[in-house]
Design a protein around this nucleic acid. Structure first.
Lengths: 144, 144
DNA sequence: GCTCCCCTTGAAAACGATTTTCAATTTATT
DNA sequence: AATAAATTGAAAATCGTTTTCAAGGGGAGC
């Protein structure tokens, strides 16, 4: 999905929900798409503040939640106490390798794991909606 | 690991760290081992309060953190806003199937998935410390 | 372009889970 | 029993996040 498409998707979502397109929402979406993956609300707020000091913390929170509702972003919690958001642009489907020393996050895909998950779910009569697989450890640079 | 062993392990941990064995810690550990898996701090506090109304909320929080530090429990976050603790007794190794409708949590093991994780980690030069795999969906009873 | 209604905003207050503070108490050691 | 240090419960503080509220802004219909 391209950035342009994401933007029009968001506009369409706003319209459909009877919500409004505002300057702030445009600015926040731009910065969100520009910034790397796994941004926390605070990360994004601090970035935004440089160019747009008048944007409020609450607005950033509200807008990111909106992105998640509309499906252009996904919320993640890696256990550091902050919710992080990931653009659905990038997110074909992948899981995460997380270095517990330096915090680096690497994304990976492994279709065989997905298949095995399906198998497990089926065995328990579950219908999978989503899943989350995170591997925590030490990256090459941080290994002893 | 038996419950008796867990208790002596905890005593040993306390001694080694120069901490003290107290009535409250005994009571909380007993209740924790008795109660099912995936207890939140509040769950445990409410259970304890019936027999021991004088035990404080903060003590339960502190003691569960202590269990986690000492390795007899593991903290988990399933995204409902509360930290849940799981006794390492039970925890050979397993992952979780979580029903997003009724909240039921089913544990499962799938050694092939573990092997694939090893493969992925190796490919990125990572040393795995721990991982977490959660499958969210609808259980047989809650499926439409 | 103007109006009106409703949505959105920023700032501050409220929130819920968890942590810390503090004075009083308990534990382990002598 | 005396002592020193750790622990407790209650209340206050803290953290990320959400809500409230009054003021401001968007856009559909005129």
């Amino acid at each position: 999905m391209s950035k342009a498409k994401t933007k029009t998707d968001f506009q369409a979502f706003l319209q459909k929900q009877g919500l409004k397109s505002t300057r702030q929402r445009e600015i926040i979406l731009d910065e969100f798409l520009k910034g790397g993956a796994h941004l926390s609300t605070e990360d994004l707020y601090l970035k935004l503040r440089k160019k747009h000091p008048s944007i409020g913390y609450a607005t950033v929170y509200r807008t990111l939640r909106l992105f998640a509702e509309c499906g252009i972003a996904e919320a993640r919690d890696f256990g550091d106490g902050q919710t992080r958001y990931e653009s659905s642009d990038l997110l074909e489907h992948h899981d995460h390798l997380i270095c517990t020393v330096c915090g680096q996050i690497i994304e990976f895909e492994e279709p065989q794991i997905e298949k095995l998950q399906e198998k497990v779910a089926r065995a328990h009569g579950f219908k999978i909606v989503r899943h989350r697989l995170e591997i925590y450890g030490q990256c090459p640079r941080c290994k002893p």
